[in-house]
Computed example of a mutant assay.
Amino acid sequence: MPYTVTVRDHMMVAHSFTGEVFGPAQRLHGATFIVDATFGADDVDADGIVVDIGLVTAVLGEITGSLTYRNLDDEPEFAGTNTTTEVLCRVIADRLAARAADGGLGTNSIASVSVTLHESHIAWASYSRPL
């Protein structure tokens, strides 16, 4: 994609993991993520933009807000799922894609969305998908 626009937010969750590979993270713990949502397009729209940054900021805030201050272990939609950083990237990207599909991001020039969750200054994960 020649054009990308990234909007940033953050969220704080609690969760635990199932599986020996997770060691002490099998116990309930908190995580604070910096969330970057990047939208890609082959070209800008008639207004010269990939996406309305203000609108995307509000939509991303709604999505992260629906997860913030939650114990994800208690959320029915995550039952039986390890809510790893990678999985949460996909969840947020899919929710953004759904909003784009229903016109909720205000443009149809977006070709892809990529979500990166930064766990710390040394570790992060991303998920990308076409729209």
Rank of each mutant, 00 (worst) to 15 (best):
residue 105 L to E: 12
residue 9 D to E: 15
residue 45 D to A: 10
residue 127 Y to E: 15
residue 3 Y to E: 13
residue 3 Y to G: 03
residue 5 V to F: 04
residue 43 D to L: 06
residue 113 V to I: 13
residue 117 L to V: 06
residue 31 A to Q: 13
residue 111 A to S: 14
residue 16 S to F: 09
residue 11 M to N: 13
residue 4 T to W: 00
residue 127 Y to G: 08
residue 41 A to I: 00
residue 128 S to V: 05
residue 86 E to D: 11
residue 83 T to H: 07
residue 15 H to W: 07
residue 4 T to S: 12
residue 12 M to I: 05
residue 94 D to L: 03
residue 40 G to D: 04
residue 114 S to I: 02
residue 4 T to F: 04
residue 69 Y to Q: 09
residue 94 D to G: 07
residue 25 A to L: 05
residue 74 D to R: 03
residue 109 S to K: 00
residue 6 T to C: 10
residue 36 D to P: 01
residue 2 P to M: 07
residue 54 G to N: 06
residue 85 T to A: 13
residue 111 A to Q: 11
residue 37 A to K: 00
residue 6 T to R: 08
residue 44 V to A: 11
residue 41 A to H: 02
residue 58 A to M: 05
residue 118 H to S: 11
residue 123 A to W: 04
residue 47 D to N: 06
residue 130 P to Q: 10
residue 8 R to K: 08
residue 32 T to H: 03
residue 85 T to N: 11
residue 6 T to I: 03
residue 86 E to F: 03
residue 44 V to D: 12
residue 89 C to Y: 01
residue 57 T to P: 00
residue 48 G to Q: 02
residue 56 V to G: 12
residue 60 L to H: 15
residue 121 H to R: 08
residue 126 S to A: 15
residue 26 Q to R: 11
residue 33 F to S: 10
residue 61 G to I: 01
residue 45 D to P: 04
residue 48 G to F: 05
residue 55 L to V: 10
residue 12 M to G: 15
residue 95 R to E: 15
residue 15 H to K: 02
residue 122 I to L: 12
residue 16 S to D: 09
residue 58 A to D: 15
residue 117 L to I: 04
residue 15 H to F: 07
residue 6 T to V: 11
residue 1 M to D: 15
residue 31 A to L: 06
residue 120 S to Y: 01
residue 2 P to H: 04
residue 118 H to T: 06
residue 2 P to K: 01
